[in-house]
Simulated scan of single mutants.
Amino acid sequence: MTKTALITGASRGLGAAMALALAPTHHIVAVAKTTGALEELDDRIKEAGGAATLAPMDIANDAAMQTLCRGIFDRWGSLDLWVHCAIHAAPLAPANMIGEKDMSKSIAGNVAATATLITYIAPLLGIDGQAVFLNDPVSGQPFYGAYGATKAAQIALAKSWQAETVKTGPKVHIATPNPMPTATRARFHPGEDRATLHDPTVEAKRILSEFGI
């Protein structure tokens, strides 16, 4: 029976690399807001001999996530793997100048949506499934207030879930990717020499191998 892997934030960067790395062994359920990028990913997965189900959805939309998870249950009954790559990257700003909209979207996308998804996805993973979260240790650094605080909160949720499921499953993993030339990082570091950064394809394979996936 083909394994299933849900990739939230699958359209670009590490999310797309994770989807492609898993495609030879898993049916990919690819979630992202950008339909065109998902279709490009689907083409690449098909070229590699894999198959995907595209879900152009916003993870902060509760009704959409309910529909997604119910659809996974109705079609497969369970889920083998969840890789959570979706992130809202608010513009860098001094702590006293963070826009209300930027903070609200950061909390909704990075914290509230993650908590909701854990609630919905945990039953699909059961005792044998696995989940992967991606840390970005920038909390407390200058100008990273909105992104850093909400990313840290997201990882705190993942760590709690990880500690709670040691004996019961699913297995919850937290990885810290090396810096990569992603669109998110380019917004934060526009003048950076991208040649010195790590290939997302290599990082995806390294992280999956680290957890025996």
Rank of each mutant, 00 (worst) to 15 (best):
M1S: 13
T4Y: 12
T4V: 12
S11L: 13
R12W: 00
R12P: 01
G13C: 07
G15Q: 06
A16L: 09
M18F: 14
M18G: 13
M18W: 14
M18N: 15
A19R: 08
L22W: 09
A23F: 10
P24K: 01
P24G: 00
P24R: 01
A30L: 00
L41R: 04
D43M: 12
I45D: 11
E47H: 12
E47Y: 05
A48R: 13
G49L: 03
L54Y: 05
A55N: 12
A55R: 14
D58P: 14
I59P: 14
M65D: 11
T67F: 01
R70D: 06
R70N: 09
W76C: 08
H88V: 09
H88Y: 15
A89M: 02
P91T: 03
P94L: 00
A95V: 13
E100K: 13
M103C: 01
S106H: 14
T114M: 13
T116L: 13
P123Y: 01
L125S: 06
Q130H: 10
A131R: 02
L134E: 10
D136E: 05
G140V: 06
G140R: 02
P142Q: 06
G145C: 15
Y147C: 11
K151A: 14
A152D: 08
I155Q: 05
A156Y: 06
A156K: 01
K159P: 03
W161H: 07
Q162N: 04
A163G: 09
T165D: 00
V166L: 07
G169I: 05
V172T: 01
N178C: 06
A186T: 04
H189S: 00
R194L: 05
L197A: 03
H198F: 13
E203R: 04
K205A: 15
I207K: 06
L208V: 12
